[in-house]
Simulated scan of single mutants.
Amino acid sequence: MTVHVACLCAAWCRTCESYQQVFEAACAELPQTDLHVRWIDVEDEADLIGDLDIETFPTLLIADDTHVRFAGPLTPQPQTLRRVLRAHLADATPAKVGNDYRALADRLRSPR
């Protein structure tokens, strides 16, 4: 099963600027072999984001082949990110999310 992990940020956000390295390092530690990791600038990739309105950065999306496992903002601490990643990679329970997050997950699953 493929799992998609996307961090939604903005280039102008100072928190995101320093968080990108934290995100990439935490994802590199993951044991998952079929893992697709994306750093998404919400302004540069507005077509991908669609109608989803991100109000808090960073926002994380974890989705598998069929549903969204997690979607929401995180505090920018490395240990929080690692804990959320491990928990939602191990647990395939669908999260209760809005249609905009489900639509983004569908676009991430689609080949470009």
Rank of each mutant, 00 (worst) to 15 (best):
81 L>R: 05
89 L>I: 13
19 Y>I: 05
13 C>E: 07
1 M>A: 08
39 W>T: 00
22 V>E: 05
72 G>V: 12
26 A>G: 08
104 L>E: 00
105 A>P: 11
84 V>Q: 00
12 W>A: 12
105 A>C: 04
81 L>Y: 12
103 A>D: 10
7 C>S: 11
84 V>T: 14
69 R>I: 04
34 D>K: 14
21 Q>G: 15
88 H>C: 09
4 H>Q: 04
18 S>G: 14
110 S>T: 14
76 P>T: 06
72 G>L: 06
90 A>D: 15
11 A>M: 11
33 T>D: 11
91 D>M: 09
4 H>E: 01
96 K>G: 13
28 A>Q: 08
58 P>S: 06
93 T>P: 12
38 R>I: 04
18 S>V: 14
53 D>V: 15
108 L>R: 01
38 R>F: 14
14 R>W: 07
43 E>A: 15
38 R>P: 01
111 P>I: 10
16 C>D: 03
34 D>S: 12
65 D>A: 13
41 D>R: 06
39 W>L: 09
62 I>H: 01
25 A>H: 14
98 G>W: 00
57 F>C: 03
40 I>L: 12
29 E>N: 04
84 V>L: 04
13 C>W: 08
84 V>H: 02
52 L>N: 05
84 V>N: 02
52 L>S: 04
5 V>S: 02
76 P>W: 04
16 C>Y: 10
16 C>A: 08
56 T>K: 11
80 T>V: 15
65 D>R: 06
40 I>W: 07
100 D>F: 03
48 L>R: 07
108 L>E: 03
44 D>V: 00
63 A>W: 03
